[in-house]
Design a protein around this nucleic acid. Structure first.
Lengths: 118, 118
DNA sequence: CCGTATCCGATGAGATACTG
DNA sequence: CAGTATCTCATCGGATACGG
């Protein structure tokens, strides 16, 4: 089906798609996933880089969120058998498809922030 | 300039987060807001219509979510001084600006669902 | 360096009953 | 019709300590 641009068609689809939104929110929602995803959007990062870069996140939460997103198929964990150990995280191909969504959400959020902080 | 009237649902840690995504999620996230927003996207609805249309939502949750989104400035509550009482909800102008974001989230979520259910 | 294991308080949300 | 008021329970996430 071709994408309908009329307001009515858009909105009729939206109602039935509220469950689609629920899927998206289940994958990207929560306290830390936005921070992690925004960073991995720019490229591969090591565990320690994420830990250092994301202010105040604990190991427990970082690991939990990474594992969940790995299970959801949007990020990949790559272990290098070295000493000292090295683990990298990156978006999967499926994860890459989220980037337009993440960008739209970031833009709207920043617009909203500017509005309420003036 | 003065912003004393709107104590929105955001908390401090999200305000300090550089990623706008956290703002968006604070506004549209949760168990019921997607369902409510998708419906209000295509027009004004009465309280009873939302209640009847959104399967399994309780009065408590419906009211809580509506009040929160009203505080956040994305929906407006309009009371008609009639008997029996009548209250309508609609997106504000700011709320209307969310529609592209909601649509992108719905589409990605549906794509994801199709992928994982095959 | 890259994690696990436990404990625990705060928050989200369902069930039920009542009201101007 | 359009809500309030309680109660209850599950999940989220913070703090701290330890491990290969």
């Amino acid at each position: 089906m071709r994408k309908e641009t009329s307001t009515n068609a858009l909105n009729e689809r939206m109602i039935n798609d509220s469950c689609g939104m629920a899927f998206s929110l289940a994958i990207i929602g929560g306290r830390w996933k936005p921070a992690i995803l925004c960073r991995l959007s720019y490229g591969t990062m090591r565990y320690g880089e994420l830990k250092k870069d994301i202010k105040d996140i604990s190991d427990r939460m970082l690991v939990a969120q990474l594992r969940e997103m790995e299970k959801d198929g949007i990020i990949k964990r790559i272990v290098f058998p070295e000493v000292p150990p090295r683990v990298e995280y990156r978006l999967t191909k499926l994860g890459q498809t989220m980037k337009p969504m993440l960008e739209v959400m970031s833009e709207w959020g920043n617009m909203y922030r500017n509005r309420i902080t003036n």
